[in-house]
């Protein structure tokens, strides 16, 4: 029977197939697409942050030795308020020049720490080392340690936290 059907005429069998495909697609799309965006939606929210963080009195930082300053920022992650911790190495080279490095390794975000006897920031994950200016000495990191902007007001050091 189907062999006799012309191109313009749809027989019952063909009609059923079309309807099944059509209804199936509608159901798939109506559940599937919302399902996907349901899953990925937390990833779509880009967060912006722009804050000056007080880092204590400038005088408390010794000259010439990178000193770790920790601070936390609380933010909403989904339904939960959680505090995120940041580590900044403040290096006071002389009375005027201040640099602040993030302690996050630029390779895979492990935390580096300053080793005074080796005069280097060492990353424990993949044996990377950065010198006192944050430049890569050896290991896999693709670029120097990230630097924060700083400013000094009334003898207090401020660190510029910018994200997103």
């Amino acid at each position: 029977m189907s062999k006799k059907t012309s191109a313009t005429h749809i027989d019952r069998r063909g009609f059923v197939k079309i309807v099944i495909t059509f209804l199936g697609t509608i159901m798939g799309v109506v559940i599937g697409l919302p399902g996907i965006s349901y899953f990925i939606s937390p990833a779509l929210k880009a967060e912006k942050k722009d804050d000056w963080i007080p880092a204590g009195e400038l005088e408390s930082y010794p000259l010439g030795t990178p000193t770790l300053f920790n601070f936390t920022q609380t933010k909403m992650n989904g339904w939960e308020r959680s505090s995120q911790s940041y580590g900044v190495y403040v290096l006071r080279e002389d009375e005027k020049k201040i640099t602040a490095f993030s302690n996050v390794c630029t390779h895979l975000s492990c935390r580096v720490s300053w080793k005074e006897d080796e005069k280097a920031y060492l990353c424990p994950c993949h044996d990377a080392a950065f010198d006192i200016q944050g430049e890569v000495i050896h290991g896999p990191p693709p670029h120097p340690l990230d630097e924060y902007q700083t400013k000094i007001e009334d003898g207090t050091l401020y660190i510029h936290l910018q994200e997103g």
Partner: peptide, 20 residues
């Protein structure tokens, strides 16, 4: 960056990450 945020359910490792 997108994959990371999908995996973590946001930029940070948080309660959302644990749940997913």
């Amino acid at each position: 960056g997108f994959i990371l945020r999908v995996l973590r359910g946001g930029t940070d490792l948080s309660a959302v990450t644990l749940a997913r």
